[in-house]
Design a protein around this nucleic acid. Sequence first.
DNA 1: CCCTCCGCGCAATAATATTTCCCGGCCGCG
DNA 2: CGCGGCCGGGAAATATTATTGCGCGGAGGG
Lengths: 166, 166
Amino acid sequence: MPGSRLDAIDRKILAELQADGRMTNVELARRVGISAPPCLRRVRTLEEAGFIRGYHADINTRELGFEVQVFAMVGLQSQAEADLSRFEARCRAWPLVRECHMLNGEVDFILKCVAPDLSTFQSFLTEELTAAENVASVKTSLVIRCAKDEPGVPFDVLEARLSKSA
Amino acid sequence: MPGSRLDAIDRKILAELQADGRMTNVELARRVGISAPPCLRRVRTLEEAGFIRGYHADINTRELGFEVQVFAMVGLQSQAEADLSRFEARCRAWPLVRECHMLNGEVDFILKCVAPDLSTFQSFLTEELTAAENVASVKTSLVIRCAKDEPGVPFDVLEARLSKSA
DNA sequence: CCCTCCGCGCAATAATATTTCCCGGCCGCG
DNA sequence: CGCGGCCGGGAAATATTATTGCGCGGAGGG
């Protein structure tokens, strides 16, 4: 099972750093119940092993003038791998597209987009996204409000699973 | 215009901390071109003003055993505010639901969910989500792969806008 | 039973954060 | 004009933290 190479202390470290990425190492060590040096060694190991991909400040997008959030459901004409990759590359190059996920089902991709205002988004939609090569259909939905936005791992679920399988 | 209370240095600070939330204050100060103390003062101010909501480690969800990601489109029977709020509260309480956005259009909500495996998700889907009060329809799409996942602000777009309006 | 290895903790050192104080520019008012 | 408050920045001192090296002890294997 993935994650089993990690012991309880490692998982606690990940959970704490997910909750507060700027926690000092001594505070982190105190919370997970070991001393600072081995704690820092574990963190470095977790980083190098790829369990921790990085640390990021959570910036208030709206306050910075990006008041529009949109989910765009995109269908392509060709689902050949080369065409899928080309579309993904375009998404990575569009700054207004913050997430791009390939899906199963009737829609090929879902994009999460941001924009300063509706007209900016509509320009992007009509001149860039819809006009892009191989794009067959685009359906967009404005985000009215956000009730929950906690990307990451539900560590409580993880611990529950591990204790059951033990 | 929102964001205009921030000068160029503040925006640079936000951009740097979004890219690397564990950057030391001296390194941050060096990058934005001021000395450490005023830099730290600015960071504190940005935190208290809500521009910085927090700092989080970006944990590799898949490596930790959550191999399934799903987008769920949910339609409700009643869109009265009280019913919307009740549904949002339920979403906040479900650990497998990581994001919950209210949308315009034919679908009322879109949820981003994670799960250790398909059967866990299907149990959640049938026993919790679909069975929840006021839920009229649920359409789910599995995430096949993720081409881009960079939540946050496209600071290059922001700077371009500000220089144009100047 | 001994040996090796791995991870922890301790102590010392280097780096960093944080506070304090002071300086210079920038208004608004006298 | 000149004055005085007001930010925002820099320098130095202090406290906190990160980091390294080393010795110890337990787990697993010979």
